[in-house]
Design a protein around this nucleic acid. Sequence first.
DNA 1: TAGATTCCTTGATTTTGATCAATGCCTTAG
DNA 2: CTAAGGCATTGATCAAAATCAAGGAATCTA
Lengths: 193, 193
Amino acid sequence: MYELFFQQFNEKVPLTAEEQETIKTFLTPKKLRKKQYLLQEGDICKYIAFVEKGALKSYVIDEAGTERITQFALEGWTISDLYSFLTGEPATYLIDAIEDAELVLISKAAHEELLQQVPKYETYIRLQITGAYIALQRRLTSIISLPIEERYKNLTTLYPTIVQRVPQHMIASYMGLTPETLSRVRGRVTGRK
Amino acid sequence: MYELFFQQFNEKVPLTAEEQETIKTFLTPKKLRKKQYLLQEGDICKYIAFVEKGALKSYVIDEAGTERITQFALEGWTISDLYSFLTGEPATYLIDAIEDAELVLISKAAHEELLQQVPKYETYIRLQITGAYIALQRRLTSIISLPIEERYKNLTTLYPTIVQRVPQHMIASYMGLTPETLSRVRGRVTGRK
DNA sequence: TAGATTCCTTGATTTTGATCAATGCCTTAG
DNA sequence: CTAAGGCATTGATCAAAATCAAGGAATCTA
């Protein structure tokens, strides 16, 4: 249990056996069925979720009622509405499972205790957020500076697994496009050459 | 010297006088004239820069040779090419001053020493990046889920100072629009009502 | 297995923003 | 003080993506 979580943790910040045991006491496992919510509209986000297995997405609903995906999380990724989690304000994002999933949850109380008690946890979190920040910055830059086709190519080379496992209309949503447009872009990119 | 830097630091993580002195020894002041570079195409990013005074921007140049602004940094903000800074890879962003500026620089060596020696520095950095991450996420969400006019309104309410101090064509670049389009959007938003 | 969804694709039309072009204002440098 | 360059605006045209619409394949499910 928690194999992937600790594998990744140890890669970033090597832990002693005791440290690992201490951390374990603060974690909660959770299984989600496809389409089940981890976080619903307006709820307060109570957890940071690490994905051991399966896939989730976070998204907002725009005024037209369309789902706009802000993030995917496959195995090894972490997902949460961080603002809501940290401030206790109602969430702006929704999170649900796009495949049956197994999660490792860290509650707010656990998070705070861990920051106090285990210095390496703070380091882990710092590195984790730094990575997420850099990934987000890269994504934003590609949105404002690259033509759509390049963005799609980038996505397929950077995250091939996502493109393979996730339905295309979700990729379209994630890219801020309609499914029709993405389908045509794919035709151009994949089709010829 | 470093007033704003330490003011903000103390707001996030209160420091003792000694801690503050220790940190001071790792900081370097730097002044930049308008249009001067802090970081040029392909260089390795050697510093995290905190803005005490003035304004900078970071950007990329797209294939058409157009500047695409990824971030503004006014007083109290921090700017860097974090990926380049952390990995030592050549920078993907350029950074220059849009107004004469006074900076507080933290070099890579200083950063690493501070992480080792001053636990509160790690906390500061963690909080700093967390804030930046949340801001970036919010921006990305507004890009993929809101119509342009709402995005502009959001920007003016969230960062009125930026909209006031920065030339409009830079705001356009930051929003991924042409100056003409932003001008028309403004006409619609500001003009009527 | 039949029926219903979900998902992707393709075509025709409309809308939106980009591009091209010109003007006037304001700042600034010689 | 004057010329030049930077900046915002406005108009006309063009290009790209959204929308509207329909069809067909694949998957799930009763």
